[in-house]
Design a protein around this nucleic acid. Sequence first.
DNA 1: GCCGAACCGTACCGTACGGTACTATGTAAA
DNA 2: TTTACATAGTACCGTACGGTACGGTTCGGC
Lengths: 225, 225
Amino acid sequence: MAQAAARDSGPEVFEVFTPRQNAVLESALHLLVEGGDRALTTAGIARAANCSKESLYKWFGDRDGVLAAVVGYQASKVRVLGPGEMPGSLSSFREHLTRFADDLLAVLSGEASLALNRLAIGQASRADAKLGHLVLERGRRMIELRAGALLETGRRRGFLAYDDADEAYRALYGLIIGDFHVRQLLGDQLTSQEKDFKARARVAIGQFFKLYGTGAAAHATNARS
Amino acid sequence: MAQAAARDSGPEVFEVFTPRQNAVLESALHLLVEGGDRALTTAGIARAANCSKESLYKWFGDRDGVLAAVVGYQASKVRVLGPGEMPGSLSSFREHLTRFADDLLAVLSGEASLALNRLAIGQASRADAKLGHLVLERGRRMIELRAGALLETGRRRGFLAYDDADEAYRALYGLIIGDFHVRQLLGDQLTSQEKDFKARARVAIGQFFKLYGTGAAAHATNARS
DNA sequence: GCCGAACCGTACCGTACGGTACTATGTAAA
DNA sequence: TTTACATAGTACCGTACGGTACGGTTCGGC
């Protein structure tokens, strides 16, 4: 299983591409965002990037290789969320969590993210879902790691209380995203109210604290009732 | 906005098909589940269903018409969840909610649901996302209606307290599903633990009551601490 | 028995796409 | 200048698919 080779084997050296190749991938990504997977033909990519099909096949192997490279390229661009000096105060911690929620909503709502997720999901039925696993590894896993670190910090600081970290993460993610992601993947248009990510983030984090916050947290944020 | 045309316009008479046509759609659905959208070719459908391509075009117009008909066919099969005599006691209400959560997890994890969602999402980038809106209308909307009725009952009975029904629904859905749906759409395999829908449903409903339950609910179900 | 409608199976057509081969151009080293 | 290499551009091939046309068969109505 080539796609699972580097799963837990260290720093995971991902192949990096030359500037020229990155420019081609950028063109391909743009093409994908504009016209969907139907627009992402080898001839189309070559035309849009002013390169030859032969070069595409030389660099990326075949069409699937190009798609995988586009996924990797976009993932490397997002470089998810800030470095994260760990917060010391409760209000700062809460602010960090809210920022995380806001960023998450913004990233998942981005056109490139939606286009790539659509592409990967569309291919997930066949061929062992290579792209799907790639997106999961490069996208969701990064998010989970960052969220996990945040939560663990909160727990050690005494702001949060939970036994099952996975359960807490699931609740956090679910409260933030809900059916947001799938709706957008299906082409649903957001109402102007739904586009207020910051407000939604605040609500979600408030709910999360109600579930997993310690007494101090509930007191400081909700005035109890 | 064509996609919002029939939103609140009444009973919405959906075209129904002959038994023979339904059998063809069943074959097509089976084909889709097995091989993904690549397997869903007009020739393939005709072969699998022992019908002629000419009949397909006569009945459904074109390939997109067949896809739309398959979506409608599956949606009409699911006939989401029971009729729902409204519960009177708190424990009964909680049980209803848990059952709803369990059913929702099972339905969304079903192979047919996943295959159709993948198909619709894969096409959502192009062509105004006709299929995507169809899935949203026939799937998500039904779920939202049923959940909304449940929640409203709970509120009227005094088991729940909320101001914003949409917010409560979002929390409920998010706590139940989380990133479950998208992960499966991307081809992720569930762990055996994650396949225990009933357990997950109980946890999610417990969390939901912690957010929106009235005092009585918290007392009766959580022994308070 | 005859007729017409519906329909299956197959053959067919045009097109679009993945992938390969070949030529032309530019460029850096010798 | 010459040689080797990388790459753009294009032409080409095989295949697969959407869509159409047509002959043959079944079946209900008369």
